[in-house]
Design a protein around this nucleic acid. Structure first.
Lengths: 209, 209
DNA sequence: CTATTCTGAGACATCCGTGTCTCATTCGGC
DNA sequence: GCCGAATGAGACACGGATGTCTCAGAATAG
């Protein structure tokens, strides 16, 4: 069944996102299968890496879809995207580290499309007056993806609790590190939760001890 | 002379930060030397990688020193750190991607020390009321380093102009992506440059076309 | 100008990961 | 309980990167 392949791919990500040069032995062990079965599922290392990348891009594209980033207020859309993308942050971490070494056309095209959607989101937000215009939309896109990857690494290594991931990402990226001098009555607290309290309707996610 | 070694190491970073599996041939060519000379300078691949990591950590430690992150207002200290660290962002990008695969004690110890200094800076800033306390100092440290690495990648690939690097990093990290509803009269614009203009006294850096 | 040192180019052996094979064992269906 | 399919374990050859060597040419000091 296809689920089996995806399970193996996710296990592979867990190893490859931290050590791109990991041997196939290690990946197979992490997936709980033998090297022979790994070879039966994927013709070779190159094919495995490619499929991991494709899985990551499919997940990120799905996150953009479920978040409906093309609709409505850009700030709310970004918050939705954070919630949708954080569960697959490990995949994104892998993509962030390895996307430049691919030379597969399908994957590169898919990558460009997703980045363009992210870019469009920030551009729209700037036109709406929601996002700052002093920072280019391209940089906002890239920095957002870098932080998603950082979330993935931090969660994977146990430095960040999964339940804090979405909040940490959204708050830092949207509001920055500086404490707001006075959060009462700021216009941006009208339709979203204020910066100083947790978003109550984010899903708690499973803890990984 | 030792400068020669560092020159080779910087060339190696330019290749390794994007492709950790690059062959020694490629690294030697990027450094403008032959593979034989590369072997004369560094006993082997492992030693080369290790020295690249050590160089990155030394540079980052030097940036922490010159920025005097232990002194004064935390926000101003962070801005100084940004200016000091951005020129070596490529080194930091390499460290961010590879620091977990080292098992050298010297390097790991040095790494821990620098991260602790960064952590202390954010903790101090939180105690001063400068940085937000809803985000843990550990996450702020990690996210900051991730963004420095992102700056390094973006500049290296030509997606971000070097002259915009420090500004983009400082503004996004400190202020976030959301447009401030009203920047006039905020206490945080008293001792540092306002958010919307570039820092005039940062060094311009050479453009890489 | 000469001698010393350093560098580049190439050849060579070695090591390690990969890809493929076979065979015993186990799981699941009948 | 029997049979087929799938899996795991191991062996083995291949390929490529690495490490080491030699030698010719260039650079530099004297």
């Amino acid at each position: 069944m296809a689920t089996d392949r995806d399970t193996v791919l996710e296990a592979a990500v867990g190893v490859l996102s931290r050590r791109p040069t990991a041997h196939l032995d290690e990946i197979a062990r992490a997936a709980g299968i033998s090297r022979a079965t790994l070879h039966r599922l994927f013709p070779g290392r190159e094919a495995l890496i490619l499929e991991v990348g494709m899985l990551g891009l499919r997940r990120f594209a799905a996150a953009l879809d479920t978040a409906a980033v093309e609709d409505g207020d850009a700030r709310a859309a970004l918050r939705r995207l954070v919630d949708a993308a954080v569960p697959d942050a490990a995949l994104c971490a892998f993509l962030a580290g390895e996307n430049q070494l691919y030379d597969d056309d399908r994957l590169n095209d898919l990558w460009e499309v997703q980045i363009a959607r992210l870019h469009a989101l920030f551009l729209r937000g700037q036109q709406q007056g929601v996002f700052r215009i002093e920072l280019s939309a391209a940089w906002l896109s890239e920095a957002f993806f870098d932080l998603v990857a950082g979330i993935g690494w931090a969660v994977q290594d146990g430095r960040l609790a999964p339940r804090d991931a979405a909040f940490s990402l959204a708050e830092l990226f949207l509001g920055g590190a500086l404490r707001r001098p006075d959060t009462t009555g700021t216009p941006e607290s009208t339709d979203t939760a204020p910066a100083v309290q947790n978003d109550p309707d984010r899903k708690p996610e499973t803890d990984t001890p």
